[in-house]
């Protein structure tokens, strides 16, 4: 792994609201804003949207698939925009620096239009 290395993958081609329901059950985040159409609308949103930690988890899978799950030490995400049903989740990574035994990786999640959903970074060991 060297500075400037990049990796990109479409992790989910079409987000399905069932994914939010499955993640709610698996993660214990039962906030109805992620699965109840009525609740989401009453809160001023057009429809339900993904748990931030769901998308972060998908990004985590992308990262561990690439660098190996045994090598991730730190993982930071900033929730920039909501992920809506029917969008794609595309993950991108770029190695920004390589140090003594570890590297810093910049991370990005976008939809199919390139709209930013999450940006973040991680520390991985080499």
């Amino acid at each position: 792994m060297k500075q400037g290395d990049t990796h990109e993958k479409v992790m989910i081609e079409k987000v399905d609201r069932a994914m939010f329901v499955r993640y709610a059950g698996a993660s214990g985040d039962f906030n109805p804003i992620h699965w109840s159409e009525d609740f989401a609308k009453s809160a001023g949103y057009p429809t339900v949207f993904a748990q931030g930690m769901f998308t972060a988890g998908v990004l985590g899978t992308f990262l561990t698939d690439w660098v190996g799950e045994e090598n991730v030490r730190r993982f930071r995400t900033r929730f920039v925009g909501q992920v809506w049903p029917d969008e794609a989740i595309t993950c991108k990574a770029e190695v920004t620096s390589v140090g003594e035994g570890s590297a810093e990786v910049k991370l990005l999640v976008t939809n199919e239009k390139g709209e930013k959903k999450i940006d973040g970074d991680a520390t991985v060991i080499l």
Partner: peptide
Amino acid sequence: DALGDRNPVYTDESFAKRSVHGGIVAPATS
């Protein structure tokens, strides 16, 4: 399942035994 993560180190005991973890581990983001 929910995340679509198919890394067998989380679910396959015999695979996980041979990994650096020596057994099943949970995904870090959990």
